[in-house]
Amino acid sequence: MRTLLRIGTRASLLAVTQSTWVKNRIEQAHPGVRVELVKITTKGDRILDVPLAKVGGKGLFVKEIEDALLAGEVDLAVHSMKDVPTELPAGLHIGIIPLRETAKDAFLSVGYDSIAALPAGATVGTSSLRRRSQLAALRPDLAIVDLRGNIDTRLRKLDEGVFDAVILAGAGLHRLGLANRITALLEPAQMLPAISQGALGIELRRDDAELLAGLQFLHDPATAVTVAAERAFLLRLEGGCQVPIGAHATLAGDTLTLTGLIASVDGRELIRDQASAPAGQAAELGTALAETLLARGGKAILDAVYCAGSPAAE
């Protein structure tokens, strides 16, 4: 291992917290190595006044970091895997996937203990098409409003009464020490998570075998298998349209089970199914489940929504 490593990271509090966790683990495992964080502003960080679905999802939070990695300005990058496109630039790969945090979404409210307890017309904030569609299917009487900004901003708006509730990723709240703000974690049966939600990915240059070997202690094979199935599902569905997509995989022994979702934004059409396969067939499982959902009506949903770049799996 070289004596200095530079981690490329977004400058948000959550991204820095995640990258600092990786930095500390590397320095503990390799006492002679010093790790620096290089904060990089991405397109997704700059555009805060437009819903994510209208900006286009591919590479929104990673492209500038990947450019720095390819240019040799940083040695590795730490990403939330749900932000990473299924197709990476030539010369780069996700070499390390640490143990996953919770994949579940979190329901936060000051006055209500569940989605079911919200009164008709209650205002719920979310930045995610996936959450919006599933909420609309569960509770078509709610007012679902786009909510952008960092976690502090979202929590402040909740506390100020701008929203009756907000839905955020549970993993981010856990990593920031804000688990006490969670009113309830939503089970995947009620709110299917985003592809790879709760998982981190460490991106490296493909020719950096020394660094890959030095970081193997961070890799969790079980998380990597579940993430591979979910990302294969997304890869098969990418067709240039903004559409709510979700998937969640679990591993029990050698059996990998994947649940997938394609929905219309208004929640009126929601196609969901589940399939299982041996752990060694993660990619095949993801592709096959996507084909099943497409055949059951998912293709019609994809064809009907407006096209603007690439799918917003969130």
Rank of each mutant, 00 (worst) to 15 (best):
residue 49 D to T: 13
residue 203 E to T: 15
residue 103 A to G: 10
residue 199 A to N: 02
residue 161 G to A: 07
residue 17 T to S: 15
residue 30 H to I: 14
residue 10 R to T: 13
residue 200 L to C: 00
residue 229 A to H: 00
residue 177 G to A: 03
residue 111 G to K: 15
residue 269 E to Y: 01
residue 129 L to N: 04
residue 193 P to K: 03
residue 113 D to A: 14
residue 219 H to K: 01
residue 106 A to S: 05
residue 150 N to A: 09
residue 229 A to R: 10
residue 297 G to A: 10
residue 230 E to G: 06
residue 87 E to K: 05
residue 16 V to S: 11
residue 20 T to Y: 05
residue 172 G to H: 08
residue 41 T to Q: 13
residue 117 A to H: 07
residue 292 T to A: 13
residue 221 P to I: 10
residue 56 G to T: 09
residue 162 V to D: 13
residue 262 I to Q: 04
residue 54 K to R: 13
residue 138 L to F: 11
residue 229 A to L: 03
residue 38 V to Y: 13
residue 253 G to P: 08
residue 124 V to A: 01
residue 207 D to M: 07
residue 194 A to P: 02
residue 11 A to C: 12
residue 2 R to N: 13
residue 302 L to S: 04
residue 260 G to Y: 01
residue 223 T to C: 09
residue 211 L to D: 05
residue 257 T to L: 03
residue 293 L to S: 08
residue 19 S to A: 15
residue 158 L to N: 04
residue 257 T to R: 10
residue 183 T to Y: 05
residue 164 D to W: 01
residue 308 A to Q: 12
residue 264 S to P: 03
residue 71 A to E: 15
residue 260 G to D: 00
residue 141 D to M: 09
residue 294 L to Q: 11
residue 142 L to K: 02
residue 140 P to S: 06
residue 95 G to V: 12
residue 69 L to R: 05
residue 183 T to G: 09
residue 169 A to D: 12
residue 177 G to F: 06
residue 304 A to P: 03
residue 38 V to E: 13
residue 141 D to I: 06
residue 137 A to G: 06
residue 311 P to M: 04
residue 212 L to S: 14
residue 230 E to Q: 13
residue 118 L to K: 01
residue 284 E to Q: 14
residue 284 E to F: 03
residue 194 A to T: 12
residue 253 G to I: 02
residue 240 G to N: 05
residue 127 S to N: 14
residue 206 R to Y: 11
residue 162 V to A: 15
residue 5 L to S: 07
residue 211 L to A: 02
residue 23 K to S: 03
residue 177 G to V: 07
residue 146 D to V: 11
residue 130 R to D: 06
residue 289 L to R: 01
